[in-house]
Amino acid sequence: MANNVNEKVRIPKEVAEAIEYFREIGWSSPSIVNIYEYLYLTGVRKYKECSHFLANNYRHIIGKFIENRIERQELFIRAVIDGYEIEQPPKKITLELTLEELGYIICDMEVACVGEAEGAANERGINYNWRDCDSLYRRLINLYEEEARV
């Protein structure tokens, strides 16, 4: 999180949309900062300008983001008061694996050494070949390194 007062913070897109929804219907920054407790305690039905479903959905998004997390509560308050940027979601890549390759990964994750992985694979009916597995891991490492450079 940013250390400087008045510096924009990064928040998820759905939290930004929730903040903007309540701003658009005329809520002040203090009301938005207290939105989770405000809507929960007073009941959204009191506000005719709010769609019951939309307000509850946005309240839920905000509540889920800040619930039981002091650092996120501070981040939310700073976003409302100082402004925000929408954080970029983590980059996702697609990797095609054969069923056998996926089996190698699962078996390796379960155990501490290659010898044990072979036994775990045999229990599942997977023909575990450490050379193929090593080749798979080299492929994964190369893919990770290529994507990390982008």
Rank of each mutant, 00 (worst) to 15 (best):
I25N: 10
E85I: 08
F22C: 02
C50L: 08
P30F: 00
I19H: 00
S31G: 12
R69D: 12
R23F: 05
I62D: 07
R23T: 04
E67C: 10
I70A: 14
V15D: 00
R69T: 08
I66R: 03
G83R: 09
R10E: 14
L41Y: 11
R45P: 08
V80I: 09
E17R: 10
E7R: 06
I35S: 12
A18V: 06
I25H: 09
S31A: 14
E85A: 06
A79R: 00
E74A: 13
N6C: 12
R59H: 13
N56K: 09
C50A: 08
L75R: 05
Q88L: 12
L39A: 02
Y38K: 09
I70C: 11
H52K: 14
Y21P: 01
Y47S: 09
I86N: 06
P12R: 04
R69G: 03
E17T: 08
K13L: 14
G83F: 09
E37I: 13
F76K: 01
N4V: 14
E67T: 10
Y21E: 00
E49C: 09
E67G: 10
I62P: 08
V33K: 08
V15H: 01
I86F: 07
I86Q: 05
Y47I: 10
E49M: 11
L54K: 15
K46L: 12
Y58A: 06
K13S: 15
C50I: 03
C50V: 06
G83I: 10
S51F: 04
K46W: 09
V44Y: 11
E85S: 08
I32C: 01
Y47N: 09
I11R: 03
